[in-house]
Amino acid sequence: MGLTGEISAIRDGRGDPARLVGEFRRAVLLVPVEDGPDGGLMSAVRGGIRWFYAFTDEEALARFAAARGASGREWEYLAVLGARLVDAVVPEVGAPAGVAVNVADEDGSMFFPPVKGIVPDACAVDIDAGEVA
C-alpha cells in the first residue's frame, strides 16, 4: 500500500498504526535542505518539538513550496529513509524531535512524534529516563 496509502487508511479510521510506522520507516522521503551556509535539514519548532519536514514525492514538496509562496525557486533536498530520520537524525537534535510528512496536504499529512515506537527510546518524550536501558 505504501506510506501515502497507510496515511490515508489511518485518516479514514481503518488503518493499523504499526503498519503505518513500518511503512514510514521503509519509505524514501524527500527532506528539503535549508538555504545558507549551514544547509541543515529544513524544520520548524512547534510546541517545544522540532519537526523535520519530509515528503513522499516531488509533487508533495512542490505543494509545500507553493504554500510557502516559494514555488518559483528550486528546492534542494535529500532522499532519506524514514528509519534513518528517526534513528540517526532525531538523536542528534538533543531535544524532542519528530517528522512531519506532507504537511501541505490537508488530507494527506501525518506527524510522527517523538514517542516510544517511533523514535529511539532515549529520545521519546513518553518514557522516563529511568526506563531507558
Rank of each mutant, 00 (worst) to 15 (best):
G2W: 04
L3P: 13
L3E: 13
T4R: 10
G5M: 05
G5Y: 01
I7F: 06
S8Y: 04
S8N: 08
R11H: 12
D12Y: 00
R14P: 00
R14Y: 04
G15M: 11
A18W: 01
A18P: 00
R19E: 14
G22H: 11
E23I: 06
E23A: 13
E23G: 02
F24S: 12
R25L: 15
V28Q: 13
L29F: 05
V31Q: 13
V31W: 12
P32M: 08
E34H: 05
E34N: 13
D35N: 08
D35H: 10
D35M: 09
D35F: 12
D35W: 07
G36K: 04
P37T: 06
D38Q: 15
D38M: 09
G39D: 08
G40N: 09
M42P: 00
M42Y: 07
S43I: 02
S43D: 14
A44L: 08
A44W: 02
A44I: 11
V45T: 14
V45K: 12
R46T: 00
G47L: 05
I49V: 15
A54T: 09
F55Q: 11
F55H: 15
T56M: 04
T56L: 03
E59I: 09
A62K: 15
A65G: 14
A66H: 12
A67G: 10
R68Y: 00
A70D: 14
A70S: 09
S71A: 15
S71T: 15
S71D: 15
R73F: 04
E74Q: 15
E74P: 10
E76M: 13
E76W: 12
Y77L: 09
A79W: 06
V80N: 09
V80H: 06
A83E: 09
L85Q: 03
L85Y: 06
L85R: 06
D87C: 13
A88G: 01
A88D: 14
P91M: 07
E92V: 14
G94T: 01
A95K: 04
A97C: 05
G98A: 11
V99D: 08
V99E: 06
V99I: 10
V103M: 02
A104Y: 04
D105N: 08
E106F: 14
E106Q: 06
D107M: 02
D107A: 15
G108C: 02
S109F: 11
S109Y: 07
M110N: 10
P113T: 03
V115Y: 12
K116P: 00
V119T: 09
P120Q: 05
P120Y: 10
P120V: 09
P120W: 05
D121R: 06
A122N: 01
V125R: 03
V125C: 07
D126T: 00
D126N: 14
I127S: 08
D128V: 15
D128A: 15
A129H: 05
E131N: 04
